[in-house]
């Protein structure tokens, strides 16, 4: 079997769905965060595959920007998670419920 564009897009969609489901279902903030990264990487994979098979370089270029943005997001996000952990000693979503009417 030769691997074509469809297979890449299938894997990418699968990664995106797993990430999306994980964000909605997981309880641990760090696991949710990993799922978010998974969704970004699913987009990266699809971009590179499209770019390669369609002969359009824009997608390859976009990937570099996405990687940079993801790195910035992780830097800020982990800082917030660590600061919150120092205060509350927990990163489980169910226990972070101080905000309410």
């Amino acid at each position: 079997m030769t691997i074509g564009l469809e297979q890449y897009i299938f894997v990418s969609s699968l990664l995106f769905a797993i990430g999306f489901g994980g964000v909605l279902l997981r309880k641990n903030t760090l696991a949710i965060y990993m799922c978010l990264e998974l969704m970004l990487n699913a987009a990266n994979l699809a971009l590179v595959a499209f770019s390669r098979y369609h002969g359009a370089m824009g997608g390859n270029l976009f990937v570099f920007f996405i990687i940079t943005v993801a790195a910035a997001e992780v830097a800020v996000g982990l800082a917030i998670i660590v600061a919150l952990f120092r205060k509350k000693q927990t990163v489980v979503v169910g226990e972070l419920n101080a905000l309410k009417n």
Partner: peptide
């Protein structure tokens, strides 16, 4: 609030990106 915004913001960015 920061954590909730972080998760929701990143989620929406990923959806937009895909």
């Amino acid at each position: 609030a920061g954590l909730k915004y972080l998760i929701m913001g990143a989620l929406s960015s990923s959806i937009l990106l895909f």
